[in-house]
C-alpha cells in the first residue's frame, strides 16, 4: 500500500504563495469494511463516522451527539468497539471495521439482530445499530453476562425510546443463543472462552 507522507500538499506551481494547511491535504487510506477492501483519499480531519456514512454510503452507523456520549456511531474496529465519531478516518488506515451492515450472514440475521427483533428491543431504531454493535463486542468479552453486567456493558449507548428493558432482554437472549451455537460449531473454542 502506497502511503503518501502527511505533509503540506503541493498545489499548482502558480499558486505557491498559498499555504495549504494540513486539514485540506489528502491522504490515501486502505480499510477493510464488512469484509470488503476500500482504498480512498481522505482529508486528515475526516471523522471515521463521516467516512463510513458519506464516503462509503454505509448510513447504518448514526451520529447522535458530538461528545461521544450517545454511542449511535459504535462500530467494531479490529475486534474492539469504538465510537466512530471520536476517531479520524486516517486512524483506521490498514484496519478492519465491522458495521451493522456487515453483521448478518446473507439473509440470516445475527442472533443479536434477531433477538432485538423478537424482543421489541427497538422503537425508532436510531440508536439500534450502535447498540447492537456494542452488544456484539460486549458478548465477545462476556459470553455469559448477568443482567447487571449487560446494563453496564451498554452504559455508553443511549436509547431514548425503550427504557432499555427490552434491549437488556434481547442481549440476554442473544447471549444464550450464541452460546448454544458456539458449543455446537466450535466446542473447543468455547471452552477456551469459558476459561478466560
Amino acid at each position: 500500500m502506497s502511503k503518501k507522507p502527511m505533509s503540506v500538499r503541493k498545489t499548482s506551481r502558480r499558486s505557491k504563495k498559498i499555504w495549504v494547511p494540513e486539514v485540506f491535504s489528502q491522504k490515501t487510506i486502505r480499510v477493510i469494511v464488512n469484509g470488503k477492501e476500500y482504498v480512498r483519499d481522505v482529508k486528515p480531519r475526516l471523522l471515521l463516522v463521516d467516512f463510513l456514512r458519506d464516503s462509503l454510503g454505509l448510513t447504518g452507523t448514526h451520529v447522535g451527539c458530538d461528545t461521544s456520549n450517545c454511542g449511535a456511531c459504535t462500530v467494531i474496529l479490529n475486534g474492539r468497539s469504538v465510537k466512530s465519531c471520536s476517531m479520524f478516518a486516517i486512524q483506521a488506515d490498514g484496519k478492519e471495521i465491522l458495521t451493522i451492515e456487515g453483521l448478518a450472514k446473507g439473509n440470516q440475521f445475527h442472533p443479536l439482530q434477531q433477538a432485538f427483533w423478537d424482543n421489541h428491543g427497538l422503537q425508532c431504531g436510531f440508536c439500534t445499530p450502535g447498540m447492537i454493535m456494542q452488544a456484539y463486542w460486549f458478548l465477545k468479552e462476556n459470553p455469559h453476562p448477568s443482567e447487571e453486567q449487560i446494563r453496564w456493558g451498554i452504559a455508553g449507548n443511549l436509547c431514548r425510546c425503550t427504557g432499555y428493558s427490552n434491549i437488556v432482554k434481547a442481549i440476554q437472549v442473544a447471549s444464550e443463543k450464541i452460546g448454544v451455537e458456539q458449543m455446537q460449531v466450535e466446542p473447543r473454542k468455547q471452552r477456551m472462552v469459558r476459561r478466560s
Binding site: T99, L103, F109, W117, L122, G125, P129
Partner: peptide, 10 residues
Amino acid sequence: EDPRLISGTG
C-alpha cells in the same frame, strides 16, 4: 419496521 432498522438500511 424492524428488519430494515436492525440491518442499518433504514
